[in-house]
């Protein structure tokens, strides 16, 4: 027997089935949290945003009519909350990782990722992962969100285009730029014979 679809689970939850909601949560908790974590760049804020996203789902589940896929709807909520959060951070004067630093003229995100330990020192996979994470977090917002939606959730370009509100071709371009940037930033990690 095949698993019920996301939309069927949400409909079941609306009818009072909490287990359906828990199943839905289990499907998306990891990807959504990592999307928020790489966008907010802080675990505490990411957890707050994570709860906010699901609260919105709970509050607005009656508004979901099934015109779009549940994943598209869910990531649209998450993206909007991220944008609101970033606006608040800018208003409060937090330094953006994308903004060029006055001292070096290089964005903080790139500086963090580039000035890490060397490849030899990053023997442990955890440290390599940390470096990649910093590189992803240092991507420009429009490239990062496309990259994360594709990489974490495996959304189709058309679906990403719906979430972001641009054309599918623009999504592909942004994804290509993000990969080029990551490749440039993490070139010392690349070992072609292993890849």
């Amino acid at each position: 027997m095949s698993d019920p679809g996301d939309e069927a689970l949400l409909a079941a939850y609306r009818e009072g089935d909490l287990a359906a909601f828990e199943m839905l949560l289990g499907r998306y908790r990891g990807p959504i949290f990592n999307f928020l974590l790489r966008s907010a760049r802080d675990r505490g804020r990411a957890e707050e945003l994570y709860q906010d996203v699901w609260m919105k789902v709970v509050e607005r589940c009656d508004e979901f009519r099934g015109d779009a896929k549940f994943s598209t709807w869910l990531y649209t909520i998450a993206r909007n909350l991220c944008i609101d959060h970033q606006r608040k951070m800018k208003f409060r004067g937090h330094a953006s990782l994308d903004a060029p630093q006055p001292s070096s003229g290089q964005p903080l995100g790139e500086r963090v990722s580039s000035f890490g330990p060397s490849t030899e020192q990053l023997a442990a996979g955890r440290l390599v992962g940390e470096r990649i994470a910093r590189a992803v977090e240092g991507l420009p917002d429009e490239q990062r969100e496309v990259f994360l939606l594709r990489q974490l959730q495996g959304l189709a370009f058309k679906e990403i285009a719906e979430v972001v509100g641009v054309s599918a071709n623009t999504v592909k371009s942004r994804m290509r730029y993000a990969l080029e940037r990551l490749q440039h930033t993490l070139s010392d990690l690349e070992e072609p014979h292993e890849l």
Partner: peptide, 24 residues
């Protein structure tokens, strides 16, 4: 391009806390 995608695939995946899930 293939190398960049392979590196990006090593992006660590983190889990939300149990408390956050419980609150939801």
């Amino acid at each position: 391009m293939k190398a960049a995608l392979a590196v990006a695939g090593q992006l660590p995946i983190e889990e939300p806390s149990a408390a956050a899930d419980a609150a939801v």
